[in-house]
Write a protein that binds this DNA or RNA. Structure first.
Lengths: 128, 128, 128, 128
DNA sequence: GTGGTCTAGACCACC
DNA sequence: GTGGTCTAGACCACA
């Protein structure tokens, strides 16, 4: 399930892209699985269909999905292309931080801390 | 020395902010050091003085610098507020990647790889 | 309705901020209400759109409003953040006056006098 | 003793004016008392003599002090003109807050609270 | 249509 | 000289 934050500076169409890519990276969506029709997803999320169409177009351009006229959109054979949407940004921010003088140790600590927090939260959720 | 990329989608005033914060994080600029006059920096970078003024205003709002009327702008006393401009973004991207299903090991490898690349490049530069 | 005084030394963008905050504090604008588009308000007030944009940016930074790309600006959920823009300044001036040796009674008399004047004026207006 | 805050948006010359007016309002300076020579005060405060001269000129213009060529500046017979520098600003902020929809009770509470805080602090100091 | 950003050139108060 | 503000007009991404 994709959650949209209309506030904030991340464009809505980009949030949709990330949502789809996340589902692929986590294995929820597998190659050749069908993804929701643009109109349906737009209605579910309460946003403009054009915005969803823009997101799907971007994903198709990146080779993450492919569309069959009249049949819908499907997850492509992608290798790890879906991951790249996240790892590329992570790498860029890593580069910026190191370039700015932040130490490698500081970044490693942050990575460790965030991972620990999320592991604990996930474990807590699974106990519900 | 700040380098401006007018082509990218990162606002110029934000690039200036990062440049200043980077110099502070690296110790090139120390508390109470004077930073270049807005007009001078604008001329050096070949951009509009207003854009620099906007960057300086943002830095002052964030407590990174303080301005003295008629005298210029100076680096503020601050713990690691300048670092935060980079570590916060790094943490956010880390969280997004982990949440999207990217493994901790993958991110750690990226961090290691970028750090190694930059170390080698730096060493190469120092040999010039 | 916001009234702009271009002659005084209060920046126009600050006057706009106060006008919006005043309308929120008085309940004319409620959370999630849309505020006028920057260009429209600029035209109505006869000032430059950039000046209004600056005011809106300041209000968003302070958490008074939030902006939705392509949709407009809206009043944020907030306790009394809009009031604070006035009460903080009042408190500061109160502190300065007391510190300077002005008696508490004198200030209380001024508060009472201004309040009475405004009540009478308001009553007079409602009789028109 | 006048304390100057070079940070902040209050002009230094205005801070000097307030310092002098405060001393007059508190009875530390009485009519026809001599106030420090501009050059001396400038040296004591570590600021530009021109700035002190500007403050003295403003005070003379307002009838708070008078200058005798070659003899120095003296406190004028002033009634409560020195108070006005504080009460006028207090009144203006009071008017703005009430006009913005802040209730008279809220302002009265703030006045009471600030007065109480300062009374306690003053008492604490006198016990030192 | 919206807000966000940039450029160009100008005026002001302050030091 | 400095930073702070305003105007004029322009381009962009987003919905």
């Amino acid at each position: 399930m994709i959650v949209i934050d209309v506030t904030g500076r991340v464009p809505i169409f980009e949030q949709i892209c990330r949502g789809i890519c996340g589902d692929i990276a986590k294995g929820i969506l597998k190659p050749h699985d069908r993804i929701p029709a643009a109109r349906v997803l737009a209605k579910d999320l309460g946003i403009n269909p054009n915005t969803v169409a823009k997101a799907y177009a971007a994903l198709e351009r990146d080779g993450i999905i492919y569309s069959l006229a009249g049949k819908g959109c499907f997850v492509a054979e992608h290798g790890n292309r879906a991951d790249r949407r996240f790892t590329d940004e992570f790498e860029q921010k890593t580069r910026e931080a190191l370039h700015a003088g932040v130490s490698r140790e500081t970044l490693a600590e942050i990575l460790e801390r965030v991972w620990t927090e999320m592991s604990e939260k996930k474990e807590g959720d699974s106990n519900d």
